[in-house]
Amino acid sequence: MKKRKLGNSDLWVTELGLGCMSIGTEEKAAREVIETALDEGINYFDTADLYDFGENEKIVGTALKEVRDNVIIASKVGNRWKSDKSGWSWDPSKSYIKEAVKQSLKRLGTDYIDLYQLHGGTIEDRIDDVIEAFEELKAEGLIRYYGLSSIRPNVIREYVQKSHIVSVMMQYSILDRRAEEETLPFLHEHGVSVVTRGPLAKGLLTDKMFKKVSQKGYQDYSQEELLNVLPALKDKLAGDRSFTEIALQYNLAHPAVASVIAGASSPEQVRANAHAINSQSLTEDEIALIKTISKTTLYKEHR
């Protein structure tokens, strides 16, 4: 599988990464998903301390222990579970970040995290303190690089201007193009890579698209709009290709994107996603057609 450089780091990530949130807590089944990803050539595994109260990190770390030097592990920090585990609160304090990383390292069973990401962020945070925490963790060798997992334009701009982030993880798909006009070009211009999540729009951008349409719609699309847009996309683009191929290749077509993070709860889903990533790139005409059929909007908040 092809690799792309992550920002100005020396990390080369596969064009497809495994989003580990959906692998579940049954260790045998979860390991099968991770081992299938390894078999497909995937080297990028994304987890977070928030997932399954930390159990996700434990499973990921155990499954990758024997290949640790050959893979890139990304985790996240900032959401703090309540003592009764009924919910979590936002805590981007320097003291919490520096304590939380130790717990993540312990669960992952590793001495370092390749990419440590702030799991959110607001403009009201003490951003200088957050950056200082990450820089100290780098100096201490506990993390190699750091980034954001955020869709907030105002927060992203602050970190790009003030810090050494190498990546921003953000939602991006044919049905969610909010980042396209503003954020993606800005990050590309500043040498910060984008790692995309939600590329299949909760299954709407797969061959099961019509089963996934609900009355709630999706993002800026109503149910009625989806029932018009999805058939148009499929009829004019898919042909003998799966729509998963179209969706993932659309993400890869943007020069700011380093890797597409897709979740999987079964080995079959991993293999299907890998096949889609390894498939033929979209042509300029196909990309233009997608943009004509789908919506382009801007983030309305966090200006």
Rank of each mutant, 00 (worst) to 15 (best):
K3Y: 15
N8K: 15
D10S: 13
M21V: 05
I23F: 01
A37W: 02
E40I: 02
N43G: 05
L50Q: 03
E55C: 06
K58A: 05
K58P: 01
A63E: 03
K65M: 05
I73D: 11
A74G: 08
K82N: 11
D84M: 04
S93P: 05
S95M: 04
A100V: 01
Q103G: 06
R107V: 02
L108M: 08
G109Y: 01
D111E: 13
D111Q: 09
Y112H: 14
I113Q: 03
I113S: 04
H119S: 08
G120D: 06
G121N: 09
D125I: 10
V130H: 04
A133D: 06
L137I: 09
I143H: 07
Y146I: 07
S149K: 08
V168P: 01
M170C: 10
E180N: 04
P185M: 02
E189I: 00
S193M: 00
G203Y: 08
K208T: 14
D220Y: 14
L226T: 01
L230E: 10
L233M: 09
S242A: 08
F243V: 06
E245K: 15
L252R: 12
A253H: 15
I261R: 03
A262N: 14
A272R: 13
A276R: 07
S281D: 10
E284N: 13
L298E: 12
E301V: 14
E301W: 14
